[in-house]
Nucleic acid binder design. Structure first.
Lengths: 226, 226
DNA sequence: GCCAATATTGATCGGAAGATAAATAAACCG
DNA sequence: CGGTTTATTTATCTTCCGATCAATATTGGC
C-alpha cells in the first residue's frame, strides 16, 4: 500500500448536466427538502443525505447556510412561523357565528395545517431538543387560541370576561386542545389506524367539552365575581 | 510526522481503583443510566458518553449488550413493560367506588408513573423512531384502559355494555386521555410552567368529561340499541 | 464572444461514532 | 497459594459527520 491512504475508488459517476437555479429559489428548495428529511429522520439527519435528495453536492449547502444549525433554524421558521395563520384569531373572535360552529371551523382549519407528518414530527423533534422556539410557540397558542376561547365561553355563560382568566381555566382548555392534538400524533407520528376521521373527532370532542366545561368553570367564576 | 498516526495524547488518567460488580447488578446499572442518558439526549447519544457516566470504559458495554440496539431494547423493556402496573385494570373495574373517584385514583397513579422526564421523553423518542413497541403500548392502553372506561360509562348510563364499543366512543376517550397526557408533555418535555398541579388538572378534566361525554355518547347508543 | 462574477463541484480534514481483539487485573476455586 | 476464569481496559479499525478550500463550470454584462 502506497502513501495515498483513503483514496476513494470513486465510481465513475455519470456526469449529469449541472443546472443552476436562482439563489432564492434554490434556498426554498433546500429548506423544503430539509423539512422533509428532518421530519423523517430527525435533526441528526446528515447533510450528505440531504444533498443527495436535492441532486446536489454536500458542500453546496454551506453556500446557502453557514452551518447546519442555520439550516435547522430556517426549518423552524418554515414550520412555526410561516405556517401560522393570523386569521385564526379572527375566526375565534367572530361572534356572529355560534360558539360550537366557530370552534369547529377553527379546529378543522388548524388541524389541516398541523396534522401532517412534517409539522407534527418536526414539532416533536424540536420539542425534545429543548429549543426555545417551541416554548414560544406554545405560549403563543395559549395567548392567541386558548385565552380567547376561555373568554368567549365565559361570555356565553353571561359572565364578565374582564376579570383575568384563571390559570385553571386555561389548563382546562389545554386538555381540550391536547386531546385534539394527540389524535394527530397517533395518526401521523405513531402511524396508528384512526377509524374516526378528524372533523368527526373534533365535533365529538368539542361537543363533550362545551357541555361539560361550564360545570367546572362556573363555580370558580361565581366565587371570583363577588 | 512518523508512521504512528492517530496517537492519542492520552491525558494521564488517574488510575482509579477498578471495582467489580456482580454481572446482573452491573446490567441493571447500565440499563438505568442508559434510560437516563437516552431520555436526555435521545437514542443517538454515544456509548462513550454512557460509559463515562458509569465510570467504565466503552467496550465494556459490549460485554453486556451485543450491540447498541440491544441496549436500547433493554431500555424499552424497562420503560414500557416493567413500569406498567397490572393493578390499573383492577382499579378501573372496581365498581364499589364511584366512577369519578375511580378514574381520579387511576389517573393519579398512572400519571405518577409516566409523568417523569425519563418516561415521557423516551416514549416520544421511541415513537419518532417508529419502533413497534410504541404502537403496541398504545394498543394496550386502548384495550386495557380506554375500553374498560367506555364500558363503565355506558353502565352508569344504564345501557347494555355487551354491544361492542363504538370506534367513536374509543376516540372520545382518547381525547380525555390525550388531554391529560399532553399536560405531562408540556411540563416534563417542553419545560413549561404549569401553575395547576397534576391532580387538580385531572380532577377538572375528568369532571368536564364525565359531565359532557354522555351527551355525545347517548345518541349513538340509542340508535344502536334497537 | 469575451470576461468578470458566482454557483457548483472535487478533494480532504479532524473528530466522533459503533464495534472488535488482544492484553490485563480482579475474583473464584481447589 | 496457584491457577483458571471472567470482568475490565487499552488500542485500534472503519465509517460517517460537519466543515473548508481550491478548482471548475455556468451565468450575465458589455
Amino acid at each position: 500500500m502506497t502513501d495515498d491512504r483513503t483514496v476513494e475508488p470513486e465510481a465513475p459517476r455519470k456526469k449529469r448536466r449541472r443546472v443552476r437555479s436562482k439563489p432564492e429559489e434554490r434556498y426554498r428548495e433546500f429548506v423544503q427538502k430539509a423539512v422533509e428529511l428532518f421530519a423523517e429522520v430527525g435533526f441528526d439527519a446528515g447533510t450528505r443525505e440531504l444533498a443527495q435528495r436535492l441532486n446536489v453536492t454536500q458542500p453546496l449547502l454551506y453556500r446557502y447556510f453557514p452551518s447546519k444549525e442555520d439550516l435547522i433554524a430556517a426549518v423552524y421558521k418554515e414550520i412555526y412561523l410561516d405556517r401560522w395563520k393570523p386569521e385564526w384569531e379572527a375566526m375565534l373572535a367572530d361572534e356572529s357565528v355560534p360558539i360550537l360552529a366557530r370552534y369547529q371551523a377553527f379546529y378543522e382549519d388548524y388541524t389541516s395545517t398541523i396534522f401532517t407528518d412534517e409539522w407534527l414530527r418536526i414539532y416533536l423533534f424540536a420539542g425534545l431538543r429543548g429549543v426555545d422556539i417551541n416554548r414560544r410557540y406554545i405560549i403563543n397558542v395559549e395567548e392567541r387560541i386558548l385565552h380567547p376561547m376561555a373568554r368567549s365561553v365565559r361570555r356565553t355563560l353571561g359572565i364578565d370576561d374582564s376579570v383575568p382568566i384563571n390559570p385553571q381555566e386555561v389548563e382546562l382548555f389545554w386538555t381540550l386542545h391536547g386531546g385534539i392534538f394527540y389524535h394527530g400524533v397517533r395518526k401521523h407520528v405513531y402511524d396508528l389506524p384512526c377509524p374516526v376521521d378528524t372533523s368527526q373527532m373534533i365535533a365529538n370532542g368539542l361537543k363533550a367539552f362545551i357541555e361539560g366545561a361550564p360545570r367546572v368553570i362556573q363555580p370558580w367564576l361565581h366565587k371570583q365575581q363577588e
